[in-house]
Simulated assay, not measured.
Amino acid sequence: MLLVVDAGNTNIVFAVHDGLSWRGIWRISTDTQRTSDEYAVWLLTLLTHQGLSPAQITQTVIGTVVPAALYNLRRLSRDWFGTEPLIAALRLDWGIEILMDQPSEVGVDRLLNGLAAHRLYGGPLIIIDFGTATTFDVVDDKGGYNGGAIAPGVNLSIEALHQAAARLPRIAIGRPQSVIGRGTVAAMRSGVFWGYIGLVEGLVARIKTEFGAPMKVIATGGLAPLLAEGTDIIERIDPELTLEGLRILAGRNPHPLLTNDKSKAIEGD
């Protein structure tokens, strides 16, 4: 079985795929100080609850936009599952063309979303990922990654609003009943929710005009279901899109062999 690890700025997602389907998907908050043993205590408990054992894990793939988290995730793979992890990096065979001025600047999470979305839904398409940042990624009909746009994430904007304005409270995102808020909290909720809907609809419209062809719109990320309620431009929500990208990438590339050379644990990709 394949252990997939998607390390983002807010959460790290662990998932197990048996070759046919996902057997389990679990999330833990991102903490670069968390050790491999701490990960193991948590993850092995969840595997056992799902009827799985560490011995069933034969391959591991890791995608991360948090370099500081990589060391302990590698140690987890080696020490607890006896596998040398495949690290998602540009040097691998992606099977897609990266049409960027500086390909090295692109986060692997965006490439993974593009890879999976094109494999699953064809193209051309726009992938919106509602994560720590809200990203818009453009993939053409051949699967080529064309770039996109990056905006502050919803929760990041809420926190910035609270921190910068002394009299504005911290609020939770939710769909307000009306656009006109008759109180400070109601007004903030309206501005955040409908403001993001306007941002999404505006950027998608401009991307489609600039691209010059009909495009599918796929959304992923924890807030995708909520924000999709406010607009009809999102055609499909796929919460496992990045995990699917890692699974596809792992299938395209040979997995490295486990080595006893401990210096390998601190190498970057």
Rank of each mutant, 00 (worst) to 15 (best):
258 L>R: 15
128 I>A: 09
61 V>G: 03
193 F>P: 00
130 F>I: 11
151 A>H: 11
154 V>Q: 09
165 A>S: 02
11 N>H: 11
142 K>Y: 10
141 D>S: 14
91 R>T: 13
144 G>F: 10
100 M>K: 13
111 L>M: 10
52 L>C: 02
156 L>H: 09
155 N>I: 13
236 R>Y: 04
88 A>I: 10
141 D>N: 13
54 P>N: 01
235 E>R: 00
76 L>M: 08
209 T>F: 08
68 A>F: 02
196 Y>P: 00
102 Q>I: 12
22 W>S: 02
104 S>A: 15
225 P>I: 13
17 H>W: 07
116 A>N: 10
225 P>G: 10
226 L>D: 08
2 L>K: 13
154 V>L: 14
185 V>G: 09
189 R>Q: 15
24 G>E: 05
212 G>P: 00
9 N>D: 02
266 I>W: 05
155 N>H: 11
137 D>M: 15
88 A>D: 02
33 Q>A: 14
227 L>W: 04
46 L>T: 14
140 D>L: 08
69 A>P: 02
173 I>V: 15
95 G>K: 01
178 S>I: 12
63 G>S: 14
80 W>Q: 11
256 P>T: 12
250 A>D: 02
230 G>A: 00
149 A>N: 10
222 G>I: 13
80 W>N: 09
10 T>K: 01
172 A>E: 14
187 A>K: 09
232 D>S: 10
218 I>K: 11
259 T>L: 14
254 P>E: 09
62 I>C: 01
23 R>E: 08
169 P>N: 12
17 H>I: 04
53 S>A: 12
249 L>C: 04
25 I>G: 03
113 N>F: 03
12 I>T: 04
